[in-house]
Design a protein around this nucleic acid. Structure first.
Lengths: 145, 145
DNA sequence: TTAAATAAAGAGTTTTTTATCCTTTTTTAA
DNA sequence: TTAAAAAAGGATAAAAAACTCTTTATTTAA
């Protein structure tokens, strides 16, 4: 088990990829994104459709069309991408899968998990979509394979 | 998405349940466990078969048979249950799902994720199967619903 | 020593997730 | 104004995860 679903992994990688490729204007096509992040093209298409509807990425059709992220949306926290795709289960769910686990009715791991969830949330909410652009441009970090 | 698979959630709950019900001798049957942790009976049966083969829980067939965990195994860290069921992906995998993500070829979230994974591992490896028995006996923590 | 109780094993089925394909719509540039 | 490029949409397929049922093997107690 990974922390996020495949869909969410592709979504995050795609968003980072689009961000760094379009921060200084221009657009990038589906095929190029899929190739750049090693994801199945048509599956990624669905994910981007969804992110586009939600306004997290922008797109235009036609020749020279493609996906891009405008400067406003580059500031968006990554947590919003995760929440759009996987929901907020990772932020609020019980580690043992109990529906009614809470402060007043805790599972044995409740307190330990709370810290971990907080740390995940902290990380995702303080990380913005655009903040890795420079490292990606420099090839310091990777989104492929 | 949850952090662990359903199978793993049931496994952890079952192990805690069996531990606290059999720490002072005796055995507990499948139906009672399934009921005690709100899990599908036959699905749990498969999980316990597997944990039994791996020696994490013990069992005997026949009248008065059932599952139990002996004192040696009560000391086992919870990480071994997770690893038996979900593998070690949660401890070592890349947050963005990249196969070749590493220190020398990191994804953008590599360092942030390393901390989170370490914390998860830390928690699971320092938590033993038996350490919640008292709280469970006192009804301070829950394994159901 | 046999019958009942119980887990183990085997063989499915259903649901969810992941992935693919094909058609339609929109946009742009020649 | 038309052809090409690209995303959007709809339908389906494949794989994995979750779950169920039935039979078999084992154990114990009567």
């Amino acid at each position: 088990m990974a922390v996020f679903s495949k869909t969410c992994e592709y979504a995050m990688r795609a968003v980072f990829f689009i961000a760094h490729r379009t921060a200084s204007g221009g657009k990038v096509g589906l095929k190029e994104i899929a190739d750049g992040i090693s994801s199945p093209e048509y599956f990624l298409a669905k994910i981007l459709q969804d992110l586009s509807k939600r306004g997290i990425v922008q797109s235009t059709k036609g020749p020279n069309g493609g996906f891009y992220i405008d400067s406003e949306n580059l500031k968006r926290p990554l947590s919003q991408v995760v929440e759009a795709v996987d929901g907020n289960g990772i932020f609020i769910g019980c580690g043992l899968g109990l529906k009614y686990c809470s402060e007043s009715n805790p599972c044995p791991l409740h307190n330990q998990f709370k810290e971990i969830r907080n740390q995940i949330y902290q990380m995702l909410s303080t990380t913005t979509i655009g903040e890795f652009n420079e490292d990606l441009n420099l090839g310091i970090t990777a989104l492929k394979k």
